[in-house]
Write a protein that binds this DNA or RNA. Sequence first.
DNA 1: CCAAAAGTGTTTGTAATACACCCATGG
DNA 2: CCATGGGTGTATTACAAACACTTTTGG
Lengths: 241, 241
Amino acid sequence: MANNTNETIEETTSLLDIQFNAAISVDCVIFGYDKHNLKVLLVKSDMPMYKDKYSLLGDLLKQDENTDQSAIRVLAKHTGLSGLYMEQVCTFSNVNRHPLGRVVTVAYYSLVQLNEGLEELVHHHPDLKWEKVSDIEDLAFDHLLVFNKCLKQLRYGLREKPIGFNLLPEKFTLKQLQNLYERVLDIEIDKRNFRRKLKSIDILMDVNENETDVSHRPAKLYSFDKIRYSSKKKKRFSFEM
Amino acid sequence: MANNTNETIEETTSLLDIQFNAAISVDCVIFGYDKHNLKVLLVKSDMPMYKDKYSLLGDLLKQDENTDQSAIRVLAKHTGLSGLYMEQVCTFSNVNRHPLGRVVTVAYYSLVQLNEGLEELVHHHPDLKWEKVSDIEDLAFDHLLVFNKCLKQLRYGLREKPIGFNLLPEKFTLKQLQNLYERVLDIEIDKRNFRRKLKSIDILMDVNENETDVSHRPAKLYSFDKIRYSSKKKKRFSFEM
DNA sequence: CCAAAAGTGTTTGTAATACACCCATGG
DNA sequence: CCATGGGTGTATTACAAACACTTTTGG
């Protein structure tokens, strides 16, 4: 794919040169879950026409990276974390979506467990905030559109793939997992049915530990068993509930 | 979104100007179904390094259009048709995916019923061909990747949304519909179960006509009842089978 | 011993699967 | 009247949904 002749390069460099080029950006909907609420990391817009509005975290694509790499870079820059779960969602390209020129943006969402460290982020960076998903009403640019699309894809994926674990600590209780599903999907789930479902899917590992520091019967802790999951991945099963 | 002050324009035009820009293209996986096979419209690559290979139909994004419009334009140009079912699938942006320079491409798939008119297309345009999906092994650029992703999304969507009808004529028999599911998903379906399922979903309209020109009992013709479908769309139901 | 949440089974309805014969038409 | 594919029903099984009480711990 890289050993083109000089001839070819000349021919097409010119072809592409006369073509319209656009800036390409990546926008990340960074979902954080703090055991009660699903939140999204937002940054105060630095554009005069969008002052007082917040926007998603993003950046322009660089010459030596693809959009996945760009998204990883944006995540690392703002959260300090790498290896986060991440999905490309959709590309937005309306002609006037960006007031400063033509910018086509590729949207990603990613998932992170909102611990104290991450909550603290916003104290050092006053332009950042974790906004509850249910409180998001208005964003700069077309970012409300982008956000809605990403939220939809997250909800969809949560029913079909074991991605929810990315929003929880390594070890968690069944109640925490159920709460996650209830909060993110905005539904109520019967405790017994939920537990039976999880038992039948059989992708959790009993870590033989209990919750601590609770003033009632402590719950057992589990972790997601990636290995067991991949071994049964072939048969399509649904997380539907 | 369009009344920026001069100040803003100056400030950011310069900001965007110094940024890296890339060409943006749209690539369409145009699926055609001829009652026996699912096929894809391909065009012989005009690039020396990919001679003898075929590629998807695509074009570079123009200044005054978004990628949806660009895809519609590509579809119209090569099939002469408009209003085809179409979905954005994914964006591919690897640095070296295009030998002539940096081109980020947005992939779409679309669905069309392959009638004689469309089959004939390829006689007037010797560079075009309808290739059976099962025969596609190698394509120019990263188009095999693009194609595979689009096929996957088509199969996925077929199980969840009533999009199959876009591959059939307005009026069709239940057998034709079943064949479509079997061929596209590459599975076998029990005739009685299939028919019961469709009856329960209740989105077909009996057009009170029969097949003609068959040397056996003619089958009843149905059409997809869009209105009835949208009226029950709220409850999520699955085309799963 | 009390408060609080953890943990557990059964019943009922609904949808998926497997399976075989009669019917209507053209030739 | 025969060949061809169209059209139909039932029994079984698996899964989803609804629902209430006992157990364990901390204070």
